[in-house]
Design a protein around this nucleic acid. Sequence first.
DNA 1: CATGGCCGATGA
DNA 2: TCATCGGC
Length: 800
Amino acid sequence: MDSENRVVVLIDMDCFYCQVEEKLNPELKGKPIAVVQYNPWKGGGIIAVNYVARAMGVTRHMRGDEAKEKCPEIQLPSVPCQRGKADITKYRDAGKEVAKVLQKFTSLLERASIDEAYLDITAPVQQRLKNLNINTITASIIPNTYALGYDCVEEFLADVHTCGAESIDFDYEHAQHLLIGAVIVSEIRAAVYNETGYRCSAGIAHNKILAKLVCGMNKPNKQTILPKHSINILYNTLSLKKVKHLGGKFGDIVCDTLKIKTMAELQRFTERELQAKFEEKNGTWLYNIARGTDLEPVQARFNPKSIGCCKQLRGKSAVNDLDSLKKWLRDLGDEIEDRLEKDALENNRTPKQMVVSYSVQLLDGRDTSSSRSYNFVSEDELCGELLSNKALELLLESSEGCKPKDGEANRKLKAPIKFLGISVGKFEDNCDAKKTKKIKDYFGAGTSKDKVVNKENAPESESEAKPNEVQKKPNKNCDKDYILKKFFQTNTVTTENTKSVEPPDKSVKSDAVFESSLYKQESFFAKMLNGKLKQSDQQPGNNECDTPAKPTTPVCDVVQCGENSNDTDYSSSTINNEINKSIALFEDDPQDDIRVKSISSIRELLKTKVEIDNEPETENNDLENPANVRDNTEVDSHANLVEKIETFDCPECGKKVAIDQFETHSDYHLALKLRDEDRQQMRKDKVKVNAIPIPPAEDKRKKKKTDEPVIKNDTKSLANFLVKLNDNIVTEMCSECGKKIPVEKFAEHLDFHEAQRLNRQLNKKATPLFITSSAKRRKKSESPVKKTKIPCKSIDSFFK
DNA sequence: CATGGCCGATGA
DNA sequence: TCATCGGC
């Protein structure tokens, strides 16, 4: 494939977070809005602004209060908080929803961020070229399309139709390809809108950098073509710093050393000159990009390579003592655990490495950052507890940042930690031969690959498609195996082993970690302090607290644990969180009606859906409706037809699911939801406990289990989401939970209880890797779990 | 106190 | 492996 003749697209969602908020709360539509995070201080920091608000002068980097000044009627939805930090789950999920639509058009898709993706549509363009007469393309089938260097797209069309007769520069074939690309991108964007309700913009060019450059030139809800012969028109005025990879320090260096500002000026230098000044590789790259050449391929990557979370701890919220360090690490670890579990269910993979990163404030006020990694071993139980304990261990052994103070439970760090992050990566597929064999051994033969593959897509990188992965054969009896395997898929040990593996006593362990690390040499803090301060007590093994440092230094200048600001922050954000959750409960997201069907209603759905009805209803697509150009290319006719007959778009995840797999697949989603709901409940209990002031020395987790009765809050049970309660509906009391259930939903509701029982059993059976936290906590708080085999009867009755 | 919270890539 | 950069 000639990498100079590709058709590369960048799809960029318009003010994405705002769109997500608008979709979740349709009342916001048409109003000026900006999404903020952390409202308490000056209305929160603005991270996204919709176009109504932009028109009124609101920009990013403003605080919510400033935005109110510019635009008094602005609405400021806020990023939810969880565990004291921003939680962007809903935007991540929305981004994934969009990417799944994009993926239907090409598997050569590289997700560049939460709301951006590069697509290489060279092959689809070639396909389309076979059957499409270029002269039939009119402006009406590519609405909202611009071509750089032309006043309107009609002029570009005319040029293409006349083969750019009058110009020697005109590369007809290239322009033709981009035009067909624009047609396809129109369809892509229409599909994104029809299937998700989100609008996006696109850049269409022959490489990633150019696609990116022009994508932003017409927004929102527009697409821009950059023909090769217009590159110089763009470059004449384009600041070099606007180009990807040149936006930072390197770009500054290039501008400074060459005394230039625009891309056009960069063309004056030979490749050798550039290599001499910026090293060979960079020189070549600069030389090429100055001529519109960028050979970087679009990588097929749908899933992120790492999952991480981090937290800035600025100002007073900087971490100064061991207890709040532990608390933050635990929160970060718990979030990773949540996301990892979701990831494992969706992608059937397990990370092999974790990294903890942090930064501390130097004495001169600057920050210095560092990170340490750890490779998991097979016995590791990938839960928040392990992650946070490991993180603490790594952090302490790399920096030995704290010392005990005799007689005091809490210990102070020597320098404030301003940033903490944990991430996991180096993912490996779970379904290697050994594990598959073990699963098979356990469940008996007959289970096959559980991944439902979109067979239309070419094999991709990562775990998405393995060479040996084959389309699952229809198997009526695989439902059970499927759902069970979904719960077990991250396990490497058999259930028999589980029982003998006791979770380590965390309080003992982390203290032991702490103690042992005290005797390690080469403390980062020690080095720092020795270098800068020449403090006297930096001997390894010195167990005494520092004498309060010189008053001029920030060292040891901390409030006592328990009344430090972290705890306050935490409680207030907890309140925010509760509010957000309450709001969410009352939001009427039409999608939810589809999403939380019980198994039986999905079965109903399946019956009716067997009829092929894949066409999205043509909504009032006010601005652009590319007239549903369903022409007779191979992709559109043949493949789609086959797909329509055999597969079904899962309303939950958008994946193509073979119809004979649909029950199985929806059971999986239900199971996922049940578990989520269970975990939500546990989490809520935990939040409640955390909001109550706890003596610093106490381990809150232990305390929760012993002292705090688990408060059941039925309003958030999944059962309530399954039906919309309405006063006018005739209900029947459920003997099991005491709730009123509409009569016609009653059978469904019983299914729910059945499924919940199943879920419990599955949780009990979970093995160390990826045991669900809810199961773990139950294990400790409730009577010992009976170590019985999964009773076949109840599962069978459920699946019957 | 005040872009935060991501993610990926690269070079030593 | 870690530090640093770049970009959204």
